[in-house]
């Protein structure tokens, strides 16, 4: 399963607002903890190690080595 890097979220503006609202009024430390838990939850949902590795590479803004 290749990492989806084209638009895939329905109502992107709503999603983005919800993501920011999640952090609204929270201390930096608390937000960091939420983000870390979020990464683990989403990573487990994806499960596939290859897809996860592609996401790691995309996250550090690395050009994809495989088509």
């Amino acid at each position: 399963m290749a990492l989806i890097t084209t638009p895939n979220i329905v109502d992107p503006d709503d999603f983005y607002a919800e993501l920011i609202a999640l952090h609204q009024g929270r201390a930096k430390e608390e937000s960091d903890a939420i983000n870390a838990r979020l990464v683990l939850l989403l990573a487990n949902h994806i499960g596939d190690r290859r897809t996860l590795r592609e996401a790691f590479e995309a996250a550090i803004l690395q050009e994809r080595t495989e088509p």
């Binding site: 903890a33 838990r37 990464v39 683990l40 939850l41 487990n44």
Partner: peptide
């Protein structure tokens, strides 16, 4: 610091969700 962040995240999640226990 980030390694501690993820460790604590795994421990907090492990209390509620089985997926985090193998981590």
């Amino acid at each position: 610091e980030v390694s501690r962040l993820f460790r604590d995240a795994a421990l907090d999640l492990a209390a509620r969700h089985t997926f985090a226990r193998p981590l």
